[in-house]
Computed example of a mutant assay.
Amino acid sequence: MALWPRDDAPTLDTTPEGSSYVEVTATDVDLLAESATGPALLAETDGGEAITVQVAPEHLEVIEPGDRIRVLTLPQAGGAAPYVFVDLVRGPPMALLAAVLGVLVLAVARLRGLGALAGLVVAVGGVLGFTVPALLTGGPALPVALVTASALMFVLLYLAHGVSIRTSTALLGTLGGLLATGVLAAWATGATHLNALSGEYALDLRAAAPEADLQGILLCGIVLAGLGVLNDVTITQVSAVWEIRALSPAATRRELFRGGMRIGRDHIASTVYTVAFAYLGAALPLVLLVAMSDRTLLDSLTSGEIAEEVVRTLVGSIGLVLAIPLTTAIAAALVPAPSAAPFPAATGSSTDDPDPAPTPAV
């Protein structure tokens, strides 16, 4: 509540006065109708009206007849209302992908999948409702990032995995990893003099929201970027310790920690390059441009946007590595005490087996 933005966030007007956005269907992209403003393509409105849409030459290479496109109408310019190409309409295929994901998650994960989808909606709403306005109005980046991530973890973990000691253990490990990631990100962005000015939209953002701290936004992005993978490793480590306890009811807590760390080491080895490949894939066009330059590898890695991606990868990986032993230690301390009696498995009771083996006679 103390960090909640009190001022209204700045808004960016993208629609000229008297104009509007409409969706039309491209009909002929091979015929370039040269006009005073450059090349154009032919399209048809939903009402069947044939129109000419002004478009940049580079977009003609990706538009095909039958594609739905979004255009801007400028009725105040001249006699006939011209149309200017804005973007392709991508909503329907994206909605289809989201629907397929939702169906698969519900079919495979069932109630937990439903909780995860609900948590995803809450997470997006939390970021748009709190984090974005707080950053745009000049809120302190590190507290905003940590509060956002912590609050979302409370909701996401309990919605997806239920209220239990196991979930609470994973939450403690996640919060510890978040704190380490946030502190390290704050130091790294300052020590490496990252200011986010080399980004594609940095100058536009500074002009539209002068109160926003670009370096702080970069810091907040580093914390939020590692949140999903951090949650994954903490849940996995807690589940591993609980399963080891189920298989070895008499094992000591030290033995549980050692067993969990054996699994954690494999997790570290796979997760580190998973994070690296995720950032590499997101920044691949930038990597291609850097690869064509005549600069040395060290100069490329320490300059501009490449340095931001490198620091983001290193900080996120360090946070993950620290979270695994921390979570494993907490899980080993909070798991039920050693017992000679069989420990109930976390996956369910023996009734889950449709055809249990008969008990041998004594």
Rank of each mutant, 00 (worst) to 15 (best):
P133Y: 06
A134D: 05
L146Q: 01
T313L: 10
T11R: 12
Y201V: 14
I306R: 11
A331H: 05
A329M: 12
P338D: 01
V55F: 12
G48S: 08
A2G: 09
V233W: 09
L114V: 07
H193Y: 13
P338R: 09
V24E: 02
I235G: 00
T25H: 00
G190N: 13
I63N: 11
S150E: 04
P57D: 11
A141E: 07
A191R: 11
T137E: 04
A251N: 00
L96E: 14
L197N: 11
P133F: 06
L194V: 10
I324S: 01
I263M: 08
S150A: 13
L120F: 13
A250R: 15
S293R: 10
V241M: 01
L197W: 07
A340T: 07
A269L: 09
S317H: 06
I235Q: 02
S350F: 09
G260I: 03
L334V: 14
I235Y: 07
G119N: 14
V100L: 08
V53G: 00
V315W: 04
A269V: 06
A36V: 11
S248H: 12
E243P: 01
R253V: 06
T271H: 02
E211Q: 14
L326R: 03
D213Y: 06
A282N: 11
P285I: 10
L60C: 10
L298S: 08
I330P: 10
A81M: 12
V22R: 05
V53A: 01
V144W: 09
A9K: 05
Y201E: 15
I63K: 02
I318Y: 12
Q54N: 14
A107V: 14
P249Y: 01
L326Y: 06
P57W: 14
E34D: 15
A80V: 12
A134K: 04
P16D: 08
S19N: 05
G199M: 05
L175R: 01
I318R: 01
P354E: 14
T189C: 10
F257H: 15
A329E: 08
V29G: 05
L322A: 11
V223D: 08
L42D: 03
